[in-house]
Design a protein around this nucleic acid. Structure first.
Lengths: 153, 153
DNA sequence: TGTTATTCGTTGCAAATGCAACTATGTCAA
DNA sequence: TTGACATAGTTGCATTTGCAACGAATAACA
């Protein structure tokens, strides 16, 4: 009586569970880098990474691209500005908007962390094998495409 | 001057980023189910899923298996007990330990959500194709194995 | 033009979280 | 036995988070 008349559901093979496990393990590994060396939170790093990769944009665009909640972005931006990593400027054509751009210091951090990120990525590929890595990437993209566009984009 | 003299780092191909995106999309989809219908948080659901799948065990074991922080487990367990989904019993051989087990009500929720989970999973596989789905699963397992065991297990 | 709806970003507040400190129990060895 | 150390689980506290409500600016349109 102590054991379930067990249904077929197996947590070990449940994709949301696997995704979370993998994401957590992998993210924590890299998070240690930018946390220890630059005092950045995950959200702060992601905001910087988007600005670094895609150029200046406003907060709402970052939300749309990264699917980070807008409150979180708002606070991350405030902190990044306080630390001199980005600047905000009211858009002249629409004064609700604030154009965000990395400062030189911010760009430098982005470049440095980008290099670390690529090294981390290479290590990952080596650990599980390049073919598996490629297949994984493709699967993740498919998933994001399948669920991202329909829901909230 | 507004655009980065861009380094090679490409956020779109950064695995931790892809993993987080995918995990978030997919998890939120399923989370809506157990949140809306049973008022469960993600941690609560995961605790129940572990108990349902692996049978009675104590909180520390749940921590080890699921990699959830022990404070979080402690609080989830307290809430689940308050709602009648599980029982705690001091282990007779070691009175520090508390054996946790799902109640009938808890088991019923686990079974119901398990069924939903399988349906959700089937939908995912259909959306991206079974081969990709299988490859994705294999890659995720490899990643978890590669990073999980070394770090904190 | 005036009225209503929408969008951008911030803030208040309650809930969730992480970390360290703590209690209680158990282990090991002198 | 005693004392040092380890483990199970809880609690205090500061930080982070999500959601809803908000003010300001703009769009849409009668």
């Amino acid at each position: 009586m102590r054991d379930t008349p067990r249904p077929d559901f197996d947590l070990d093979a449940f994709m949301p569970y696997l995704l979370n496990q993998a994401a957590e393990h992998v993210s924590l590994g890299f998070a240690a880098t930018y946390k220890a060396d630059y005092g950045l939170t995950r959200t702060q790093w992601r905001v910087m990474a988007n600005l670094g990769r895609f150029g200046a944009m406003n907060a709402a665009e970052i939300c749309r691209i990264s699917h980070i909640e807008k409150t979180r972005v708002s606070r991350a931006v405030a902190q990044l500005e306080a630390e001199g990593y980005l600047t905000r400027a009211r858009a002249s054509d629409d004064r609700r908007r604030e154009d965000l751009a990395l400062t030189e210091a911010g760009r430098a951090v982005f470049v440095a962390l980008g290099a670390r990120g690529m090294a981390y990525q290479a290590d990952m590929a080596a650990r599980i094998g390049p073919e598996r890595f490629a297949a994984l990437e493709e699967g993740l993209r498919a998933l994001i495409a399948a669920y991202g566009t329909s829901a909230d984009d």
